[in-house]
Write a protein that binds this DNA or RNA. Structure first.
Lengths: 284, 284
DNA sequence: CGATCGTTTGACGGTGCTCAATCACCGTGG
DNA sequence: CCACGGTGATTGAGCACCGTCAAACGATCG
């Protein structure tokens, strides 16, 4: 394993685990939630007096299924959550990997149903806010309202991440961008940005990047050969972050309207070109 | 999007081109904004007494540039807004086309800067809410707070649309999905879902779908040959919506982990069979 | 140890990107 | 009225990235 900096590092193994149950010793007040969200609290007494449900989800279990009624929205306290949609024919499109502090399920608010599914990639705990209480709590506790807006705004920005990853660039560049994003997230929660343990399988990465899982393997190999990273199964070490970022920036060549953006910046990095077939049956 | 249960169908009809000039007589109060968002208003007097700035943007002009300070967030009243990001090398990734009732610029809230650019594709008008007033207004006027949450939730759902379009499926299917989305949006604002005028160029569609613009042209041709649509430049007529939807649903076959769901689904998807989907494309 | 799953590597074929040329539709000016 | 550029849409030819299929490996677990 790696980086035992986080609490509850004890239970990483996907054990049978005790069934979902509000842990007895868990502190679960609104004050904790607001602290997690990084919002300063004025009325500590009020915030501390409002209880918040903590929900536990075992590795591989679903927080909610696609199409389920929207009962609550969640905030990741520990662990990792994967959100995805599944097409009629069974193809699963991974939409995101959510970590500590991120909102889950907010997109269900407008329709009353979850348009996506959410499953835990490891044993996880989340704060749960019933949607029926949401509005009232926001009025009673302005800090919560503010935190909610900020968190959702962040979540909207993550759409850009997804677009960035699925953009029509070479598969190796997609993987590089993905690793940069992971690295950034690790740093954001105070863990090592250069050595980490991926919580998701190659297949899930592939479904996130929109490529075949064999291609993910090959791309890992390519990045390793470039000296950017060293990957052993899910253990990843970033050897040269600067080079990785530079490579991640490379896009495809464009030939229509190229605004002469100052100096030609593309000095190194071979293969900028991308072509190829993005079609048919992604091997799952 | 807008809650379909709401009445006010009368005012949805675009009253021709009254959006001609800068609004001397335009009513621009919070009540109008809330009506646009489809939220019932309790305190009409209060809502009507709060003025709201209406901003006009000429076709081709920017609402805000990428990286600009987040001064306001906007709600489209009339027209169409394109949001996009531009990579260092000049490649523009279109993130969405926003129409009546949709929020623009909310993703800037968490960082204070706009991570994307927003450009008008036609002469447009938008309600503008200064970010510094946002929280105060939300507390004063609970309806606004609620409307905001719903609108942002919708916006989060649109991320799924983007993922759906950029998913690794054939270019023709992407275009079909795009047209279905446009059709649905047209219906949502009370216009014809089968005949409409696209507000964006082929290039912009291409950068939205993540393909080359030549491929968009070819895909239009393919859909036309299938008898689904008839396209003349930006004028599009959907001839067979059912067929188009069916085609848009087709993804790819998967044989790896097929969900062993009860009875074998006898439904044969009109799938794009391997081996030259474009050229053979059945008859017609 | 055998079974199952995830990962890796190889070979082959196809789709879609690149590079071009052409056409249609403008607004301008000769 | 028509030549002249400019923009956007369409069409064609060639090539290579990546999806498919296949098989070997490795890891975990019963």
């Amino acid at each position: 394993m790696i980086n035992p900096t986080m609490p509850t590092a004890e239970s990483l193994r996907p054990r049978t685990m005790r069934t979902a149950r509000p842990a007895p010793g868990d502190r679960c007040s609104m004050a904790d939630l607001l602290q997690l969200m990084g919002v300063p609290v004025n009325d500590h007494h009020l915030a501390g007096s409002i209880p918040v449900v903590v929900r536990r989800v075992a590795s591989g279990q679903a927080l909610y299924h696609e199409g389920a009624d929207a009962l609550s929205i969640y905030f990741v306290r520990t662990g990792t959550i994967k959100t995805s949609r599944t097409a009629e024919d069974g193809y699963e499109q991974v939409l995101g990997f959510l970590g500590r502090g991120e909102v889950v399920g907010f997109d269900a608010l407008c329709s009353g149903h979850h348009p996506t599914a959410a499953v835990a990639l490891e044993d996880s705990t989340l704060y749960a806010l019933p949607v029926q209480d949401l509005f009232g709590l926001g009025q009673r506790l302005p800090e919560l309202d503010r935190a909610l807006h900020l968190a959702v705004s962040s979540q909207l920005m993550r759409r850009d991440d997804l677009a960035e990853l699925m953009a029509p660039v070479a598969a190796e560049v997609r993987l590089a961008r993905f690793l940069v994003q992971v690295s950034r997230k690790m740093a954001a929660v105070g863990q090592s940005p250069s050595r980490f343990h991926l919580r998701m399988s190659r297949r899930e990465i592939a479904r996130y990047l929109g490529v075949a899982h064999e291609t993910v393997s090959r791309s890992f190999g390519a990045l390793a050969q470039m000296g950017c990273v060293h990957a052993d199964n899910r253990e990843v070490e970033i050897l040269n972050l600067e080079r990785l970022r530079a490579f991640a920036r490379s896009t495809r060549r464009q030939h229509d309207d190229a605004p002469p953006v100052g100096t030609a910046a593309s000095l190194h990095l071979p293969r900028v070109v991308a072509g190829g077939a993005t079609t048919q049956a992604l091997h799952q």
